[in-house]
């Protein structure tokens, strides 16, 4: 009985693949008809407030341009997930994809495969290798972000003293890129400053708080904490506040204004660096659709992006604008 069962299951599988006469294309799908463009939009991870804000902007642009928007991304920390989603989109038959790459080189193979099938690829937020996409919608280069962070930290502690970094995880590729540029900026410009430690917070506020508490008492001379993932900024702020070191230990980092408003006003957090996140999603879809329609071609010098107006293109990067530095005075002007 067991044998027949095994044979049955062996036979049934390929039969299941072939028999129902699986349609190759959904008749309702306009994918190849060229009427309504199908645009896929991927965040680095789902359930992340930064990318939720991006998605809002993306949906706005999709509505405006009348395209079909697919939104999906990794829901866990499996590093292969983005590649798998890209490969699935290829077989799904999307026309354009806009991807925020978790993994610069890792994803390039999958994206090149998409390009080979005639799918237009645009990256946003964090890039892949230039040969695997047409345009990169750039809020700021990794170097630009890192230098803004380092310069801000240096300004806060008058260019001397010890500081520490709190990052998301030790394997997060983009943050390692920033850390590299932070360290080279540090070596080049701020000889009197010293990076004493780098701690991961697993992208959790409470862990960031615990790490900041430890850092402050393990390094009593610590003058500044630089939190380079968004939950780490409020986490570190709460730690500084609880330790009674408001103002004595400065805090800056990358984060959302809404999560840091109270701490900025209390003076626990000195500044938060970020760009208009929803605009980044909006611009990504605008650029994706334009390159899908071939109205945006390689070599263009400027790009007219809906309500954002005419934007500059540097080589193949469409620049959203420089990152903002949010502080006590201007934080109320932003609603994300």
């Amino acid at each position: 009985m067991k044998r027949s069962q095994f044979l049955a299951s062996l036979l049934a599988l390929p039969a299941a693949i072939l028999l129902p006469g699986c349609e190759k294309t959904d008749p309702a799908a306009p994918a190849s008809s060229g009427k309504k463009l199908t645009v896929a939009f991927m965040p680095k991870s789902k359930g992340n407030s930064y990318f939720i804000a991006c998605e809002k902007g993306a949906r706005e642009a999709a509505q405006e341009l009348g395209v079909e928007l697919l939104f999906d991304g990794p829901t866990n920390t499996d590093p292969a997930k983005q590649n798998e989603i890209v490969e699935n989109w290829i077989t799904l038959g999307v026309d354009v994809m806009a991807v925020a790459c978790e993994n610069r080189e890792g994803i390039s193979g999958a994206l090149k495969k998409a390009q080979d099938k005639g799918i237009k690829v645009v990256t946003y937020d964090s890039d892949t290798t230039p040969d695997a996409r047409a345009f990169f919608v750039n809020q700021a280069t990794p170097q630009g972000i890192a230098e803004a962070l380092m310069d801000e930290a240096a300004r806060l502690c008058a260019e001397e003293g010890e500081f520490a970094i709190i990052t998301a995880t030790l394997t997060a590729a983009n943050m390692n890129e920033w850390r590299k540029h932070i360290e080279s900026r540090l070596a080049a410009k701020y000889p009197k400053m010293k990076l004493v430690d780098t701690k991961p917070c697993d992208d959790q506020k409470d862990k960031a708080q615990a790490e900041a508490t430890n850092l402050m008492s393990a390094y009593p001379a610590l003058k500044c904490i630089m939190a380079i993932c968004s939950p780490a900024v409020p986490g570190a702020a709460e730690a500084i506040k609880q330790a009674g070191k408001t103002g004595a230990v400065k805090l800056t980092g990358l984060g959302l204004p809404s999560e840091n408003r109270a701490y900025l006003k209390e003076g626990v957090t000195q500044s938060v660096i970020l760009w208009r996140v929803a605009d980044l999603g909006y611009l990504a879809i605008q650029a994706a659709v334009a390159s899908g329609n071939a109205t945006l071609k390689p070599g263009a010098k400027t790009f007219k992006a809906g309500r954002l107006g005419e934007l500059e293109i540097e080589e193949t990067s469409i620049i959203l604008g420089k990152p903002f530095i949010f502080n006590k005075e201007n934080v109320d002007q932003f609603d994300f």
């Binding site: 697993d202 992208d203 506020k205 409470d206 708080q209 986490g235 709460e238 109270a262």
Partner: peptide, 16 residues
């Protein structure tokens, strides 16, 4: 007991 220790709740607070 975790919530009362800070002014915000992080939805990822239970992970792990």
């Amino acid at each position: 007991l975790n919530l009362v220790q800070s002014p915000q709740v992080d939805p990822k607070c239970g992970t792990g």
